[in-house]
Design a protein around this nucleic acid. Sequence first.
DNA 1: ATATTATTTTTACGCGCGCAAAATTTTAAT
DNA 2: ATTAAAATTTTGCGCGCGTAAAAATAATAT
Lengths: 335, 335
Amino acid sequence: MEEFASLSGISRPTVSKYFNDPDSVRASTRAKIEASLEKHDYQPNVFAMNQNRRTTKNIGVVVPNLADPFFSEIGRRVELACIEAGYSPILLSSHGSVAMERDNLASLRALKPAGVLLAPFGRMSDKDAIQAFDDDFPLVLFDANMEDVGQAFVGTDNAQSVDLMVEYLCRSGEAPCFFEMKSPTNPNANKRHQAYVDSMERHGEAPRIFQVSGDGWNFEEIGNTEGGQLLSSDAFTTNTILCSNDRLAIGVLSAAYGLGLRVGHGADCDIRVAGHDDHPFARFTCPPLTTIAQDYEAIANRAVSDLFAMLETDSPHSTRPETTFDGRLIMRDSA
Amino acid sequence: MEEFASLSGISRPTVSKYFNDPDSVRASTRAKIEASLEKHDYQPNVFAMNQNRRTTKNIGVVVPNLADPFFSEIGRRVELACIEAGYSPILLSSHGSVAMERDNLASLRALKPAGVLLAPFGRMSDKDAIQAFDDDFPLVLFDANMEDVGQAFVGTDNAQSVDLMVEYLCRSGEAPCFFEMKSPTNPNANKRHQAYVDSMERHGEAPRIFQVSGDGWNFEEIGNTEGGQLLSSDAFTTNTILCSNDRLAIGVLSAAYGLGLRVGHGADCDIRVAGHDDHPFARFTCPPLTTIAQDYEAIANRAVSDLFAMLETDSPHSTRPETTFDGRLIMRDSA
DNA sequence: ATATTATTTTTACGCGCGCAAAATTTTAAT
DNA sequence: ATTAAAATTTTGCGCGCGTAAAAATAATAT
C-alpha cells in the first residue's frame, strides 16, 4: 500500500481511507487513486485490514441446516442481500446439531463480524451461548424467535399462517387434524402447534393432534413411515391432515400413494393433505401440495436491513423489534 | 500472546510455534502451555496469524448451486471432512452463475487458502480464470471434470452409471429414450448424453433423444412443463424415459401424475421413468424414483484426501489423477 | 567427561495496515 | 481580502503475530 500510495502521489493513510469508504476522500483524490488503480491493480491485504479494525465488513449468517431446502433458500437470499450492501457474508450451517451452532458462533467471534444473522434451533439452542454472543456483537434472529435474545427478530407469523390454513380447510371440508413430531427439531413446530389449537377452538372444533416419534432431520422419512402407519391403520379421525411442515407432508403423500389412497379435494379423493412453508418441491409432489408460502424474500431483506440499521446507530435499541410477515395460502391439488 | 507467553514462562515465538503445530515443541513445554491455557483462555488472533503465514489453514469449497440438494449434500460432506482434518473450510455457492464462480475464486484469493475444492460448471466455466487460479493455489476438481484444469479430479463414472441403468431398463422392458435439456446447465449432462448413446448402441438399440428448451436451475419446472407436453402429445416413442437427472425426473413424474398416467414397472402401468443422482427426495416421489446413487461420501472424502496429499508434497504431481466411483442402481417403483 | 550434533528456544525484525492527533488545505462568512 | 470553521490529508505509532538467524539446551557418540 505504501508503494501504491507513493505511485499515486498520495499518502498511505489517505489510500487506506479510500478503501474503507471511497466517499470519505475528496473527489479529486478519489479520481487520482482510481486512475492509479487501473495501472497497478493493487488490492489491500484482507488480514492486515481486519487485524486493526474495530469492526470488519464481515457478516455471519448461521442456519440450522443447509441440507434443508428451506434454509438453503433463505440463507441464499440473506447472503445475496449482504453482498448487495457491500458486506462479506459468511454462511455457516449447523448441520442439524446444536453443538455445531455453538461452534459456529465461536468461530465467528474470531472473525470480528460487524453483525450476525442467526436462525437458531430455538428451544434446543444453547441460550446462554447465544446471549453471550449477543452481548459482544450485533445479533438479529430470523425464522425462529427466542425470548430476550438478539436485538431484533424477523420471521413468519405462524398464528396468522396456520389460522389461514385451518380456516380454509374447515371451510372447504372436514376440519383438519395436526400431524407433527413428538419432539420436533423444527424451530417453529411449537408455535404452529399452538396456532393450530387456538385456531381450531376459534372455529368451534376440537383439536386433534397426532404426534409421531423420530428425531433428526429426516422429516420426509418420518412422515412416510409414521404417517403411513397411521394411514394404513385408519387412525386419523378426519380425512384432512395438516402437517407441521412440507417435508413431513411430502412423506405423508408418499405413504398415501403407496397405500393407493387418492389425495386431493376432489369428490373421488380419500384424504386431504396440507403442509407449511412452500418447500421448493411442493409444486411437484403428487398431487401438488397445498401449503403456506413464507415470504422468504421479505424475511431475508428485513433481517438484513434491521441488522444494518443497528450497525449505523451503534447504540443498542431500547425496544426489541419483532417483525413477522404473513404467510400466503397456496392452493394446489392436495387439499 | 506476549502476555500469555510470559505468564506461561515461555517465550512468545515458542507459543507461536505451539499454535501452528502443538507437536513441534518439546513435550514438557507443551504441557506447560496447555496448563497455562486452562487458566487464561487465550486464543491467537486469526487475522494476525494469517497475515504473515505463507499458507493458511483455510480450504475453499466452491459448488455451483447450494440450492440444489445434490450440491448441498456433497458440499456438506466436504466441509465436514475438512473440519475433521483440522482445516477451516469456507463453503461458497456460485448461485447458478458462472460470473459468481469467478467472483468466488477471486475472493478466495484474498484468503490465501491452503487449497481449494471446486465443483465447476464445466464447459460453461471461465476456464482461463480457473486455470490461473490453479497456477497459484492447489486446486482439486470434483463432480465435473475439465480438461487440464486442477491437480486432480474426483467424481462419478457416468459411462458406467448410465450403462448400468440402460442395461437394466433394456433387460426389464422397452429400451429407454433420453430426456434432457437442450443447453444443459448441469455439469455432467453431456457426459451422460454420450454415455446413453454409447450404451444404447452396445445394446443394439437406436438412441432416442428428447431435448427440451429452458435454462436456469429450475429443473423440476422444466421437466414438468416440457416433459408434460411431450407426454400429453404422446411424443415419446417408447414407454421408458431416462432423465438426465433426478430433478428433471421429479418434474416428469409430476406431469405424469397430472395427466393420470400410471408410472411404474407393473403390468398396469403406462410409462417408466428413471433418473440419476439419487436426489434426497427421490425416495419420496410418487412412485419412488428408480435412479443411480452417486457415492457422495466417497467422492467428498477422496477429493479432500487428494487435496491434502498434495498439500504435504507441495511439488505438483506429474500425473493428474482422475478418480471416478461407480454409481449404484437404486431400483424403486418408477422403473 | 568431553566433543559433536540435533533439537529447541530466544532474539530481532518486519509484515500491511488502522487510527488518533497534528498539520494542512479548502470552504464559508464577514 | 481576511479570518474562522470545516473538511481533508499527513505524521507517528502500534497492532498481534510469523519467521530467519542466533543462542541455548538436550541427546548422542567417543
